[in-house]
């Protein structure tokens, strides 16, 4: 198997996530797109770990999974707070700090 087939899949997933973050209006969908980006990083770490024969790739992938879980927890709590204050979670209406 080529190294590049995994890395390019990771790149495509990451760009799909970037599109989702930029284009989606629902805050929960933005969080889902961030999950896509984190998973793209994981596949890169595992590929490089296998390529150089090191275990660090797997350990760092585990750390990223843990951090993604923490991020979703806090992110959804924030989304709930926004929903409670404004009764919708459209990110385009969150322009309080817009100059």
């Amino acid at each position: 198997m080529l190294v590049n087939q995994f890395l390019i899949l990771g790149a495509v997933l990451f760009c799909t996530g970037v599109y989702g973050v930029l284009a989606r209006r629902n805050a929960v969908m933005v969080l889902m797109s961030i999950e896509l980006m984190l998973n793209a990083v994981n596949i890169n770490l595992l590929t490089f770990g296998l390529m150089v024969g090191s275990i660090s790739g797997q350990v760092f992938a585990l750390f990223i999974i843990a951090i993604a879980a923490a991020e979703v927890g806090v992110g959804l709590a924030l989304v709930l707070l926004i929903y409670r204050n404004r009764s919708n979670i459209d990110v385009e209406e969150l322009d309080l700090m817009h100059g």
């Binding site: 994981n42 590929t47 296998l50 797997q58 992938a61």
Partner: peptide, 14 residues
């Protein structure tokens, strides 16, 4: 794919 990359524990955690 993680299993294909020989990362069984990461796949299980996933």
């Amino acid at each position: 794919l993680y299993v294909m990359l020989t990362a069984e524990f990461v796949a299980t955690t996933q």
